Amino acid sequence: MVAALNETLLDESRIPAVIADVQTLIDEEVSDKSGASGLALKGGYATVKKLGPTIVPAAIEGLLPEFVTKLEPYWQAFAASGESAFSEYLVARGDEVADSLLGVTDERIENSERTAIKKVYSTLRPSAKKNVIEALPRLGVLVQKHVG
Rank of each mutant, 00 (worst) to 15 (best):
L102Y: 07
A128F: 08
L5G: 03
K145M: 11
T8E: 03
L136D: 07
Y74I: 13
T8D: 15
A135D: 12
Y121S: 08
A116F: 09
Q23L: 03
E66M: 01
S13T: 15
P137Q: 09
I60F: 07
K70M: 12
E83T: 15
H146R: 15
V68Y: 15
V22E: 03
P73E: 11
E7W: 12
D95K: 08
A98Q: 02
V104S: 02
I15G: 07
A116W: 02
Q76C: 02
F67R: 05
K70L: 00
F67D: 01
D21Q: 10
Q76M: 13
I133R: 05
A3T: 06
Y121I: 00
T69R: 15
T123Y: 08
M1A: 14
R93M: 06
S81Y: 06
L39A: 03
V68G: 05
D21W: 08
N6Q: 06
D95T: 05
H146G: 11
L63Y: 12
E72F: 04
T47W: 14
V30I: 13
E110N: 12
T105E: 14
T115F: 03
I117E: 13
Y45C: 14
P53Q: 11
I55C: 10
I15T: 13
I117K: 11
R125F: 11
K33E: 02
L39Y: 06
S100G: 15
D21P: 12
P137I: 13
A135G: 10
